[in-house]
Amino acid sequence: MFTGFLIAITIVCFLLILAIMVQNPKGGGLSSTFGSSAQIGGVQKTSDFLDKSTWTLGGILIALILLSSLAFNTGSNTGSKVLTGEETPAMPTTEISTTPEAQQEAVETATETATEEAAQ
């Protein structure tokens, strides 16, 4: 199901790119090529048609993205533990002392270990 949404999103993106590329930012675009009296697909003003199709395709794209995220979340086996009420065991905490004496002892232990490994 998620793959279907991805294919539909790709097609809508391609159509949206085409609709945007055909438009002219100055207002001419495809309509200036054919004149104002030309009819393309029964639409008299192609700029209005392209504008409406751009907004429609954008809305469809947003809807498909939202629906695909819902399909992606419902298809996964790992649900939210907050929603299901399952408790996770707490991780054991280790306390690290930052006193100068503890730091010096850690350095001496590391030095002794390194010396023993080098001797072997």
Rank of each mutant, 00 (worst) to 15 (best):
Q120I: 07
A71E: 14
G79P: 02
I40A: 08
K52M: 08
I65E: 07
Q120E: 13
W55V: 10
T109A: 15
L83K: 10
T3E: 15
A19D: 13
I9C: 00
S37T: 05
T94G: 00
F34N: 03
L30Q: 05
L70N: 05
I17Q: 03
G85H: 05
L61H: 04
S68F: 06
T98D: 09
T98E: 09
P92D: 09
T46R: 01
A63Y: 07
T78V: 15
A114I: 03
S32F: 01
T115D: 09
T88K: 12
V22I: 15
A119V: 06
Q104K: 15
K45V: 06
V12F: 07
L18D: 12
I11H: 07
I60V: 15
D48Y: 07
P89N: 13
V22N: 03
L57H: 02
L18E: 09
N77A: 12
T56N: 02
Q120C: 05
S80P: 02
G27D: 09
T46E: 10
G41I: 07
I20E: 08
T113L: 12
G27W: 06
A106P: 01
G59Y: 03
E117Q: 04
A102M: 08
G27P: 01
A118T: 02
T84I: 07
S97V: 01
F34W: 15
A110M: 12
E108C: 03
S47C: 02
T88F: 06
P92A: 13
N77I: 05
Q44W: 06
G42D: 08
G41A: 14
S97F: 06
T109Q: 14
E87Y: 04
P92Q: 09
I65M: 13
T113N: 08
F2W: 03
A114H: 03
S97R: 09
L57E: 02
T74F: 15
T46F: 11
I60C: 05
I7A: 14
A8L: 03
T98Y: 12
L67Q: 01
P89G: 08
W55H: 09
T98M: 09
S37W: 04
I11M: 12
L30R: 00
S47D: 13
I11K: 10
A19V: 08
E112P: 00
A63T: 14
I40H: 04
L70V: 14
G85N: 12
E101H: 03
T111E: 11
M1A: 11
Q104M: 08
Q120P: 00
T109G: 01
K52A: 15
E95Q: 14
S53D: 02
F34S: 06
E108Y: 07
T88Q: 11
T93W: 01
G29I: 00
T115V: 12
N73Y: 13
V43W: 11
